[in-house]
Design a protein around this nucleic acid. Structure first.
Length: 890
RNA sequence: GGACAGUUAGCUCAGCUGGUGGAGCAUCGCCCUUACAAGGCGGGGGUCACAAGUUCAAGUCUUGUACUGUCCACCA
């Protein structure tokens, strides 16, 4: 296919390659394949999810890494999969049920779970399709789901082992309860948000005395659950009351007054009511002081019988009533405004209620130290700024509440014998009680926290607990790429589980990427209406444009402010590549490229572009190795646009017109080679457009055509590194720019051809100008080029100095001479300023003596050059001023 | 209350080990030059948040201040 259309149209192209990659199973590696192992597990998106921009960033970066690793000859495995997302998925299905007027309880557990599986069958592939849509080079044959059979087996194995080791236990504890989701939540599933509320000060009378203690509370509805008052042991205001009894308002119960240094004397009245069942700190106080535990709010947020007259009220209604009642009794001392942090469920945003109940826990306090010690020795966290956060979390970790009172998830493999009360924890359902031999075994109702199965992901996806070839070949994984928002939920827990069960950390590197925000830096959210839908962006601008944008903005440790305009902007880049390819194909015609000896290649422009390509190859490789995605993208961008398109394609045009077939074939070959290697560099970032162009590109007879996705990274070509020629090219470019500048600033039409006279500063410059005469005439649009040592230019000439080479363009006809004078003055002004600062430096003896020698030498050379330029320009200015006088004299 | 980041051109951001401040977009001027108007060429625009310190030399290193943002935390 040597013909491609003039504007790049992504849709059909993408469709074609997506299908091809999957069908050809290009990304399905074999453990026996050669090459260093390289593996990544996908951060499994929720099965209920739709691709959002954060996924798009995450997946793009992983795909860039995987494709690049493949190019470097590694044996790459990228495992895709989804997470069953317990609470989220259950919520979705419950909502669907609600439309039918049913609750999950109406169906019963089994039927409900059946229903969830059905739902997953029907809708669960959406997110997978979107991963496909993004062009991810995952191995679809190894697709996993956190609830599939293998992973369930892994979960049970882990649970039982941890239980037997005493690292999983069951106990009463105050946990975070979401009364809407009807389940316990782990500490990090609670989001704290500052809310405006009130602080009520309530008087508690002291038994057998006229005295009273005023305490402040933000939650008066918990008052019926009070079982003590607490003050600081050294607080003189209250010390005489410690040990006495206070009377609970309204209910009249007697409350001991205790002392504990936990109390902050300076806050409120320095006295505190203790409600052990409804506040985590009070719970701690209750345990420490052996207080009574009275639960007054139930798991639905309704007041229990223990709350006496308030039984049956919602906790909100109860709050109002209690405040009213206390006020009536005259014990409401004051009400003030207070802003304080209130916990919300991270799934449904309902206010979380501390709740005492029996739950299962993983003793993460025991597993944490090893996971901490692994960083950075065994696992490197990048950017490093997150290491401290990781440490801090592990240092202050509490045991992990893993039981959830929902139905969708891995059911806890524990059974209680109804007869003897024996608790049996086993991988397979026991048929008889090992203690009494009876068969009345009831399984735990609760399921495990979704993150429990996620924490096993790096090895469970590779087939653990079986010993598989995949595990042997690809565990531990090379790198985990994920957002920093799940460093605790997921990363730290995978570290603990990986170390405990595999004996090795699950990944060598952890790369934490930024959050994608909107153009003004706000989080993207549906309610703000500022979400950018990646699927829509792909449809509008093409997948490559989106991918390139995300890569270009993925600077380490910095959030990304994304807007649609940016994606639109990078679409231009994709199109630029497309058109550069069109130019190349057009000029190759039907001819196949004929390789020539690169170490002896002629033509400054050829030498230069090959030299620049070597630099780009090195830079891109180094950048991707260091996870500097933005640098890799930037290098490609600059090389393609600024070097290849802006210069090389223009410089090579005369060659293409040349009668000399040697010149022409040589240029064709270089053009072909540079484009080809550039396609390889860009392919990890923009897989589609590059694959399409690659496909259209002919190969020399000596080569077999492969597909781009399987093409290795281009080899280094030391023979193409030519610094001297690159410098010469820079000079030539300077000359061309000078001519253009003169035209533009003096309002001479770019189409107007001019006579350029040049007085070179050296033999090298002379040679460069002479040897590139054709290029100069074409690209700088000259009518004539005179290279001379004797400048016999008319006084009315524009002039420039480039690297000491004097350039003069006679100005004929209707040119504004004053304009040139102004231009020269501006140039001279700039020179003057530079020279001054350089001279100031050189005049400083301290600098001369203490600075490094080469720095001083460079400065001196610079000063000399500036001085030379200045002298030359001043001469020209003088002559020019005379020309103007002569003009006006006429 | 702790911890961490950020502050560079109108906007979004690069600037590695200190040595005359960069890119993209936007803006202005000129061009439909046979790959590309989703383009080409050229120009303008910055006491690098503020202050002190180290140094011959600071956007770059140190400390402090201000503002912005994020995360963690049991202030009732």
């Amino acid at each position: 296919m040597a013909e491609i259309s003039s504007g790049y149209e992504p849709k059909a192209v993408e469709e074609k390659w997506r299908k091809h990659w999957e069908e050809a199973r290009i990304f399905t590696p074999n453990p026996d394949d050669p090459g260093e192992a390289y593996s990544i597990v996908i951060p499994p998106p929720n099965v209920t999810g739709a691709l959002h921009i954060g996924h798009a960033l995450n997946l793009t970066l992983i795909d860039v890494l995987c494709r690049h690793a493949r190019q470097k000859g590694k044996n790459v495995l990228w495992i895709p999969g989804t997470d069953h997302a317990g609470i989220a998925t259950q919520n979705v299905v419950e909502r669907a049920l609600k439309k039918e007027g049913k609750r999950r309880q109406d169906l019963g557990r089994e039927a409900f779970i059946e229903r969830v599986w059905q739902w997953r069958e029907e809708y669960g592939h959406r997110i997978l399709d979107q991963i496909r849509f993004l062009g991810c080079s995952v191995d679809w044959t190894r697709l996993r789901f956190t609830m599939d059979e293998g992973l369930s087996k892994a979960v049970r194995r882990v649970f039982v082992k941890l239980y037997n080791e005493g690292l999983i236990y069951k106990g009463d504890y105050i946990i975070n309860w979401c009364s809407r989701c009807h389940t316990a939540l782990a500490d990090d599933e609670v989001e704290h948000e500052d809310k405006k509320g009130h602080l009520w000060s309530i008087r508690y009378h002291i038994e057998g005395s006229d005295e009273s203690i005023v305490v402040a509370t933000t939650r008066p509805e918990t008052l019926p659950g009070d079982t003590a008052l607490c003050v600081h042991p050294e607080d003189e205001r209250y010390s005489h009351l410690v040990g006495k009894m206070a009377i609970l308002p309204i209910l009249g119960r007697r409350l001991p007054i205790i002392a504990d240094s936990y109390v902050d004397r300076s806050f409120g009245t320095g006295a505190l009511k203790v409600t052990p069942c409804h506040d985590p700190n009070d719970w701690m106080l209750g345990k420490r002081h052996n207080l009574e535990f009275i639960q007054v709010i139930d798991e639905n947020g309704i007041m229990k019988a223990e709350s006496g007259p308030y039984e049956g009220l919602t906790k909100e209604a109860c709050r109002e009533r209690i405040v009213e009642d206390i006020e009536k009794e005259g014990d409401l001392v004051s009400v003030s405004d207070l802003t304080h942090a209130v916990g919300h469920c991270y799934r449904c945003h309902t206010v979380v209620e501390p709740h005492v109940s029996t739950q299962w826990f993983v003793a993460t306090t025991k597993l944490a130290p090893k996971a901490r010690a692994a960083v950075p020795a065994l696992t490197k966290i990048l950017p490093e700024t997150w290491v401290k956060t990781y440490y801090h979390w592990l240092d202050t970790i509490r045991d992990w509440c893993i039981s959830r009172q929902i139905w969708w998830g891995h059911r806890i493999p524990a059974w209680t014998c109804e007869h003897c009360g024996k608790l049996v924890v086993a991988e397979e359902s026991p048929t008889v009680c090992p203690a009494c031999g009876k068969t009345d075994l009831i399984q735990e109702e609760d399921v495990l926290d979704t993150w429990f199965s996620s924490s096993l992901w790096p090895f469970s996806t590779m087939g653990w607990p079986d010993s598989t070839k995949d595990l042997e070949r690809w565990y531990p994984t090379s790198v985990l790429v994920t957002g920093f928002d799940i460093i605790f939920f997921w990363v730290a827990r995978m570290m603990m589980m990986g170390q405990h069960f595999m004996g090795r950390v699950p990944f060598a590197d952890v790369y934490l990427h930024a959050l994608v925000r909107d153009a003004s830096g706000r989080k993207m959210s549906k309610s703000l209406g500022n979400v950018i839908d990646p699927v829509l962006m792909i449809e509008k601008y093409g997948c490559d444009a989106l991918r390139f944008t995300l890569t270009a903005f993925a600077a380490m440790g910095r959030d990304i402010r994304l807007s649609e305009e940016r994606i639109e902007g990078y679409r231009h880049f994709v199109n630029k590549l497309w058109n550069a390819a069109r130019f190349t194909l057009m000029n190759l015609g039907d001819a196949k490229p004929v390789p020539c000896n690169l170490s002896a290649i002629e033509g400054l422009h050829n030498q230069w572009i090959l030299h620049a390509l070597e630099g780009a190859k090195k830079d891109v490789d180094a950048a991707l190795t260091d996870y500097r995605f933005n640098d890799a993208a930037q290098t490609c961008y600059k090389f393609l646009w600024s070097s290849f398109c802006d210069w090389y394609l223009e410089l090579v045009k005369p060659d293409m017109q040349s009668e000399d077939t040697v010149v022409r074939d040589r240029a064709r070959y270089v053009l072909w080679l540079v484009l080809r290697e550039l396609l390889v560099l860009l392919h990890p970032i923009m897989p589609f457009v590059t694959a399409e162009i690659w496909d259209a590109l002919p190969v020399p007879d000596s080569e077999e055509k492969k597909e781009l996705a399987c093409e290795p990274y281009p080899p280094e070509r030391p023979e193409c590194v030519r610094q001297k020629e690159a410098d010469a090219m820079e000079f030539l470019q300077g000359v061309i720019v000078a001519v253009r500048t003169v035209k533009a600033e003096l309002s001479i039409s770019p189409a107007k051809t001019l006579h350029l006279m040049a007085k070179p500063n050296s033999q090298e410059q002379r040679a460069v100008l002479e040897e590139n005469r054709e290029v100069l005439l074409t690209v700088a649009r000259l009518s004539e080029l005179t290279v001379t040592d004797e400048l016999n230019a008319p006084k009315a000439s524009a002039s420039e100095v480039v690297s000491g080479c004097q350039l003069v363009v006679p100005l004929l006809g209707a040119v504004d001479l004053k304009g040139e004078l102004a231009r020269l003055d501006k140039q001279l002004g700039k020179l003057e300023k530079n020279l001054e600062s350089v001279n100031r430096c050189l005049a400083d003896q301290n600098f001369i003596q203490r600075a490094q020698k080469d720095v001083v030498d460079n400065k001196r050379a610079l000063a000399a050059e500036l001085l030379d330029n200045k002298a030359k320009l001043e001469t020209m200015r003088r002559r020019f001023a005379e020309a103007i006088e002569e003009e006006s004299a006429r």
